[in-house]
């Protein structure tokens, strides 16, 4: 009986080790630009919020301060531009620092689809300013949802229980309607082609 218990224990141990080794390892490439300046929070619960919006809903309006100076109001784009909102969890973290710099070189792709990009985090303005300066600056408005803390993230259903936002993409069409929602695994970056593909479908009227 005792021998059987030991065998079972050993089997569980080996099984656990195997599962750990086979599990996909989180990975993001950190640019040399951020050498020594990135805080790694480790692997996080992929999604930690409850959806409140669905495709077809009117997008909740908001006004937020931007690092570029003027406050930005979503409804000001109505009738003029499609709006891609990129929520990222936190400045100075690995995956977020490996996301917006890519959007920085595809302004033409957004503009080709008559779209603007708004980047939002719950960090405060000085932090966002310093972080994006480290990227060499960005062309798109970077908005701070710091105070009241995470209010916009809450209205979009992407505020996590630890106070940061999800890694999420929302696309709002020119009528102010939510046309695309993707709350991504916080540990991974959403592929660029998913965003561009969604913009193509919106522009194509599908």
């Amino acid at each position: 009986m005792k021998k059987r218990s030991h065998t079972r224990g050993l089997a569980c141990l080996v099984l656990a080790a195997a599962v750990c080794l086979l599990a996909p390892r989180p990975a993001s490439a950190v640019s040399e630009m951020f050498k020594g300046k990135i805080y790694n929070p480790g692997h996080l619960k992929p999604i930690d919020s409850v959806a409140v919006l669905k495709v077809g809903d009117p997008a909740p309006d908001f006004t937020l301060p931007s690092i570029q100076g003027p406050r930005v109001t979503l409804s000001e784009y109505r009738g003029k531009k499609n709006v891609v909102i990129s929520f990222v969890p936190a400045a100075w973290t690995p995956v977020c620092s490996d996301q917006w710099p890519g959007y920085n070189i595809v302004r033409d792709l957004f503009e080709a689809h008559d779209a603007v990009l708004l980047g939002i985090t719950v960090d405060n303005l000085p932090t966002l300013y310093a972080w994006t300066q480290e990227m060499g600056g960005v062309w798109f408005p970077v908005l701070s949802d710091f105070w009241p803390h995470g209010q916009v993230a809450t209205r979009y259903g992407v505020l996590r229980s630890d106070g940061v936002s999800e890694r999420a993409i929302f696309i709002i069409d020119k009528k102010g309607i939510v046309r695309y929602i993707h709350v991504h695994d916080i540990n991974k970056r959403p592929p660029l082609e998913d965003i561009i593909g969604a913009l193509q479908r919106i522009q194509g009227g599908s």
């Binding site: 065998t7 089997a11 080996v14 099984l15 195997a18 080794l21």
Partner: peptide, 20 residues
């Protein structure tokens, strides 16, 4: 006992896959 044996075989197999 037999179930235990199969669990060990499965676990060792998985570990082998992970390490090789």
């Amino acid at each position: 006992m037999r179930r235990c044996f199969f669990t060990v075989v499965l676990a060792v197999g998985l570990l082998g896959c992970a390490l090789v």
